[in-house]
Computed example of a mutant assay.
Amino acid sequence: MNFHAFHPEDDLQDHGTRSCLEPFTVIHPVRNLTPPIRLNGKVIQQWRPARVVEWIDPGTGEIVSDTEYRRRFGKPVYRSERALQRTYVLGKLRPEARAFAQYILKFRNLRRGITPPVSTLVKWYADLTGQRAANVRRMVPTLTAARIIESDTLVGTLWQQSGAQAHASSFLQENARAAVAQAVMWMKRRDQRRCNRGDRARPAWLAQRLPPSIILAKSHAL
């Protein structure tokens, strides 16, 4: 059984940013990680995260229990732990499946899912990368097994985002934002392909006026 201990401040950065309260009493209970995390090449399945049980207002000296803190500001999120777990899950995927997963996660919405659905993103990704949609679709079961996606419109709990303060209008704009994001990625890929065409044959008139960059580099080196 793997075990690891962390400095309290590593995990409290996000815990106290929602108010002026500061940690007062901190404990380190043993916590099982599912999925695990990887640190310094070792898989960690159990650790001691810092857990605040009392908070203090440095201005007034008021001590607030963690129960009261959660009632006022909501449940604290230990983002460093979740980030490490996400890195571990993505690191176990093949490079092509990892790239597809990272692409899908760019379209997460604030309703614990993705917009548009996976079936549409498969076609978009195929168009973006020049692959067949059927080949891209074969990676969907892999992402489902890794709990990155749960259904055509829902991502796994480790990847979900929720917007309690989001307005209804923001939900109506999800499809438009997704379309813009896809268009931007497509244009960047198109420009990258244009820049990589230096090894192709050039028209005679262009070759005379502007030699390939590699020839120019050698001439400057001389």
Rank of each mutant, 00 (worst) to 15 (best):
T157P: 07
H220S: 07
S219L: 15
R111C: 01
A97P: 05
A166W: 10
Q13G: 09
R38Y: 00
R31A: 08
S151P: 06
D57G: 05
T120L: 08
S170F: 07
A176P: 01
Y88L: 04
D199Y: 13
K75C: 00
E62D: 14
G91C: 01
T67V: 06
L110Q: 02
Q165K: 07
W205D: 15
I63W: 00
L158F: 07
C20R: 15
V118R: 04
E62F: 04
K218L: 12
R200C: 01
V77R: 13
A179Q: 14
R38Q: 13
A126Y: 05
D11E: 12
R31F: 13
E62R: 14
Y103L: 12
G74T: 06
H220Y: 09
V77L: 13
R147P: 02
R94G: 11
R200Y: 13
P212F: 01
F100L: 07
L110A: 13
L110H: 04
G113P: 15
N135G: 00
A145V: 09
Y88T: 04
L84S: 07
E150M: 06
S219R: 14
L128A: 00
S119I: 01
V26R: 08
L84W: 10
P49M: 01
W186L: 08
C195I: 02
I44S: 12
D66R: 11
V122D: 06
I104F: 10
R132A: 11
F6A: 02
Q85F: 01
T34V: 14
M187S: 13
E96P: 00
P23L: 10
R197V: 00
M1F: 05
R202I: 05
T144Y: 13
A5R: 15
A204P: 05
C20Q: 11
R31E: 14
N196V: 00
R51V: 10
E81R: 15
T60I: 03
G61V: 06
M187A: 15
T144I: 07
L206R: 08
Q13S: 08
P23S: 11
L21Y: 11
S169Q: 09
G74E: 11
D11G: 14
F171W: 08
V30Y: 01
R138S: 11
